[in-house]
Amino acid sequence: MSLSSTVDGGRRLTAGRHTLGLFRSELRLVFGRARTQAGLGVLAAVPLLIGIAIKLSGSDGDAEGFLGQVAGNGLFLIVASLGLSLPFFLPTAVTVISGESLAGEASLGTLRTMLTAPAGRSRLLAAKMVALAVFCLAATMTIWISGLIVGFILFPVGDVLLLSGTTVSLGEGLLRALLIAIVISLSLLGLAGIGLFVSSLTSTPLAAMAATFGAFIVLGIMTAIPQLHAIHPWLLIYRWQSFADLLRDPPYWHEIARNLLVQGAYLVVFYTAAWARLTSRDIT
């Protein structure tokens, strides 16, 4: 009895049950790459660099915002690092990974092997998007964990003074910092959607990354132009800073909800466009 015939019997009996394999493989593809690990390493270094800089300067209190509170309470290193990574480091990481997603496979030629496997075009796209979302979460959690470790080693920690003037326990402070990390990772989904769509257009990953980053810059510039205030609420990054509302008592959800709504809208539009493109595209 040959192995393949046994296997074939098993295949027919259990057909259609192994849908998770592709998603797991997709995660391995994203997180197994040295490029991804180096990127996460850079993100992990952000709290370390900020912490060391604050420690060496020895000053406490004269820096603006969360940075000024780090020396007094190490927990704020998490929030400060997340806040400082949001404008540039995190979008860059998301741009690289999302731009690579489909264009990378097209340029390697593995896309056609995946499709004849068959992965299914819609299913492959879904797996790519899920992997991107997981990457967004992994990126912010990397900063959260690194900030936690570095903050607790370098600085005193204790009860947390919120923006609204009330004080909460360290445990609740950590929980709020965790919520901030999650909200920020959700804030990155709109950009991830744009990247996925651009990536479906080309077989050159570098071009997809450049175009995605270009779109991100343009959206940033538009956000900075006062004359465009009518459309500002619909711009990708307009409410990115709303995460700070989680440090009020009680948390102020209004702006955060609107931000997530905008992210969701971008995601739906660009994911649909990517789907329309991938399902009709000639794969050569």
């Binding site: 192995l3 046994t6 296997v7 098993g10 295949r11 259990t14 057909a15 259609g16 049950r17 192994h18 849908t19 394999g21 592709l22 797991r24 493989s25 391995r28 593809l29 092997t113 995946m114 496997a117 068959p118 992965a119 299913r123 492959l124």
Partner: peptide
């Protein structure tokens, strides 16, 4: 392994 994982009818145990 990856190409095989893409096929949902393929048995992961084997």
């Amino acid at each position: 392994l990856r190409f095989d994982a893409a096929d949902r009818t393929a048995d992961p145990r084997t």
